[in-house]
Design a binder for these strands. Structure first.
Lengths: 256, 256
DNA sequence: CGAATAGTGTCTCTTAGACAATATGAA
DNA sequence: TTCATATTGTCTAAGAGACACTATTCG
């Protein structure tokens, strides 16, 4: 058996080792802008990604994903969380690891094996930061625009992969909740899904998600203390029922 | 902005760097053993995982996942593929990356950030190798048994995660095909799914997968050159229709 | 009342789910 | 003929999908 390096005699320092294990974080947010036409109207929503402009070699001046090197005393998740915190001041948001990028030569500084996370952040959490550093070297870009840009390193690929991943997860998990307030209307949920997955279309969305036995339990109506339905009219004249996600999960299957 | 290490002045050799980037591979296979009672009967199938016994420090004598260190000239996927090839002689099988393990202190040899893959291999591909090294330091273990063992490093956790991952993917993707011949019967498919996901039960499985409009296209009947249905009686007196997977995919969704 | 969003009625066709019943062919 | 697997019949209740229709309330 020639195979098991871990099982062979181990001589520290004998091998070439990586020059660093960075994490890169694809920070998504959905911005809402009101239509000017009417006051009460569904806002325009757009999926955006946070990029920073590099100040030094390599890729000086180019836009890149935020990130940084892992320390020996933390794991990759802690590293990404720390970088996210340092970059946006945001904590306690949904962040998930999705892939490793280890193509030889991907970083001119040396052998860097990068770990990519995506984070979903509500616009309001980014608000202060954006005010602080506006017109600085940190900016939100619409994803479609970012995809066209020549990003540093292989960050274009990472962004593309991340986008595919959250599109998939938007439909198969409840990450939609990360872009929504605790209590939301059916339209808001529908809009969020469509913002991330433009192809998504369900004509009878409200019925499928509320009145169907198999889906009952994914979300539930919110009531006030008196047990009366709680509604919102932030987007319409006619008040809309508010819902919240439950904690129930659901196993999807091709075969059932 | 204190955050972007990649954007700050870069001084090579200034930081502590990892001591290695290994890959670990969870190699799954499904073994079939015939029931002794009758010749033509559905075989007993069992999900097994390949482990190796370590010959040296650390964790000498303990069982571990196969794997090895990444070289500077290859990416992690190539590394895992090479290790799999060296370990089992197997090539061209389904292998997928699923997580990184970077807990500080997980490897007494130093700062090792490990990348975990799972591979799905048909028993027949392992047959030669097993004959070669039988009663040696490479063995298949039933997963339930392996989960009870004290594996080296954090390999117990990795195995648990891998198992959860393939259970999920067994139901949401067509990885079942990796455990099946090109042409298979409905019972075989059903058995494979149940072997990986013991809770899976569909009473009307055959109809759901063949006669349902929404699922039409996942598998298709095999016919011979004359257009006649191709059947197999390897498990039963009554011959069963053979099917194959098509290339059609299907987007699962909680919301539709 | 018109605009804009929220939500219901209704109809048809398909599917889910449960079981019973029948089919096949070697031992 | 029996046995083990393969496959179809049948019935009911529920869901999918399409689209027209009603509801609410601000301006």
């Amino acid at each position: 058996m020639t195979t098991n390096d871990q099982g062979s005699n181990y001589t520290p320092g004998r091998y070439r080792t990586p020059d660093g294990a960075p994490s890169d974080i694809v920070i998504f947010t959905i911005t809402s802008t009101e239509k000017k036409t009417a006051k009460k109207a569904l806002p325009l929503r757009e999926l955006q990604v946070l990029l920073i402009q590099r100040k030094s070699w390599p890729f000086e001046g180019q836009w890149a994903l935020p990130g940084g090197f892992c320390k020996e005393t933390e794991d990759m998740y802690a590293c990404a969380k720390r970088e996210l915190q340092e970059e946006t001041g945001v904590t306690n948001v949904h962040m998930a690891y999705f892939n490793v990028y280890s193509q030889p030569g991907r970083d001119p500084r040396g052998w860097m094996i990068s770990h990519a996370f995506f984070a979903l952040v509500q616009e309001k959490w980014l608000a202060e930061r954006r005010a602080d550093t506006d017109a600085e070297d940190v900016r939100l870009f619409p994803v479609e625009e970012a995809l066209q840009m020549a990003l540093a390193f292989d960050h274009g690929v990472i962004l593309r992969d991340a986008l595919q991943k959250i599109r998939e997860q938007m439909l198969t998990t409840v990450i939609a909740k990360e872009f929504l307030p605790e209590e939301f209307t059916i339209s808001e949920l529908y809009q969020v899904i469509q913002t991330v997955v433009p192809d998504f279309e369900e004509r009878n969305f409200i019925r499928k998600i509320t009145s169907t036995q198999s889906r009952k339990g994914l979300i539930e109506e919110v009531t006030d203390r008196g047990g009366q339905p709680k509604v919102s009219n932030r987007y319409s004249q006619r008040a809309a029922q508010l819902y919240r996600f439950t904690n129930l999960t659901q196993q999807l299957s091709l075969y059932s």
